[in-house]
Design a protein around this nucleic acid. Structure first.
Ligand SMILES: [Mn+2]
Ligand SMILES: [Mn+2]
Ligand SMILES: [Mn+2]
Ligand SMILES: [Mn+2]
Lengths: 220, 220
DNA sequence: AAATTAAATTAGATATATCTAAAAAAAATG
DNA sequence: CATTTTTTTTAGATATATCTAATTTAATTT
């Protein structure tokens, strides 16, 4: 029982919103996530429910089913593998890959994904630091916290970004914050939550709380 | 003015049928080529005509326009580049690539194709020996003839296949006829048009006229 | 608790893409 | 050249996916 491209996009959005720590996923949330109107979402929820990838009671809410979760994870797996391909093999910048991966993730061919995975040397994370689910849908996720939650003098390493928009990623390129960079918190401003960090033991950076909260780190 | 995936598939079929040396392309031909019903074709011809990629008069026939030809060539370019990628980089066999390339050819990203072309080292031919149009739609086609039109004692090289079906390609694999192989015609049977050839100066092969007519060679 | 506001769904429309069955036009046949 | 056959198109139906506007349900406020 296959999903259409639209259904895959909706299901992926639902999965992301579900995992995003929100108690319940609303019709408006989904509409916001995939740039569509709530009326269209209601319609799609009915269809996804018929295909048993979500459980849905009108006006109450929805829950992704186990099979829905597996399908979403496979689409995410494909999306992230293609992103690695674009960056590692075709020299795309990390802010240029999203739209193309959004298309490539819908290509149907198990053999293709298996071979692509091998060709890329079984990567565990995509260019934005997000984990790549394996073929069984297992995700090995590292414990990671937003940079703004670190305390003064603590050290760590940037491992991912929460916001993958081109604007944010280009800003990070510009200031020299990249995945893998070692950082130390030099100062935190109580008033607005902004932070000052040392990158790679040589460069000092100021950033707003908003920016810092979209940078994910592992402490060391 | 963009085409949908279905429109791209129809236009590609029309282009192939037009180039195939046929004087005129019929509704039934198109239906046969893309596995659909003539009624659906009529409907699509009206739409392609509105988008000015074909000139179409009901019951009379159709002609692909210059802009239609360019669009078809770009889709063909993408299809063949992806085929090269699948075979050269992901170790697909030449009989496994068509279905996947049929999907990949519709991915929209000029940058992707430009980078893919460079990554593959600007290949001129796909795994079936078909020429890859350049980004301006120019095709450098070699003069090539069906193997069954060669005469006894003539020598040449296999450069392409006319039929790219998995069944035919697997047969060629089995008997050891591959693109690039040097051949010599040892014998031709007048009665049924079958031929006997020597491959790479060591292996002798018998093949029916039907098989030979689907193998394209350059004489040397 | 009634009234208001917000969220979600339904109704009805449009666009794409396909099909079967019927009708129309063109081609082939005697 | 009239008749039959084939080809092509149209009519009408179905499925997907989206929208706006109207309605319904739930949540919030007074
Ligand atoms: Mn997508
Ligand atoms: Mn990513
Ligand atoms: Mn295709
Ligand atoms: Mn090919």
């Amino acid at each position: 029982m296959d999903l259409t491209i639209a259904e895959e996009n909706y299901l992926k959005a639902i999965y992301h919103l579900s995992e995003g720590g929100k108690k319940s996923v609303s019709t408006n949330d989904i509409a916001g996530e995939i740039q569509t109107k709530p009326a269209s979402v209601s319609d799609m929820l009915r269809r996804l429910s018929e295909k048993q990838v979500i459980e849905y009671r009108k006006y109450y809410g929805l829950q992704i089913t186990e099979s829905g979760k597996q399908l979403a994870l496979q689409t995410i797996r494909k999306h992230r593998l293609w992103e690695v391909f674009l960056v590692d093999k075709l020299q795309f910048a990390w802010d240029e890959v999203h739209e193309v991966a959004e298309q490539l993730e819908h290509i149907q061919s198990p053999l293709l994904i298996q071979r692509l995975d091998a060709f890329l040397n079984y990567p565990k994370f995509d260019p934005h630091g997000d984990p790549i689910p394996d073929e069984y849908g297992d995700v090995r996720s590292r414990p990671r916290i937003p940079l703004n939650e670190m305390n003064i003098d603590q050290v760590g390493q940037i491992v991912a970004v929460k916001d993958s928009s081109a604007a944010f990623l280009r800003y990070l390129d510009k200031v020299g914050a990249y995945i893998g960079a070692r950082i130390k918190v030099l100062d935190k401003v109580e008033f607005d939550g902004s932070v000052e960090i040392l990158v790679d033991q040589k460069k000092t950076l100021f950033m707003s709380k908003d920016v810092a909260s979209n940078i994910l780190v592992v402490q060391s």
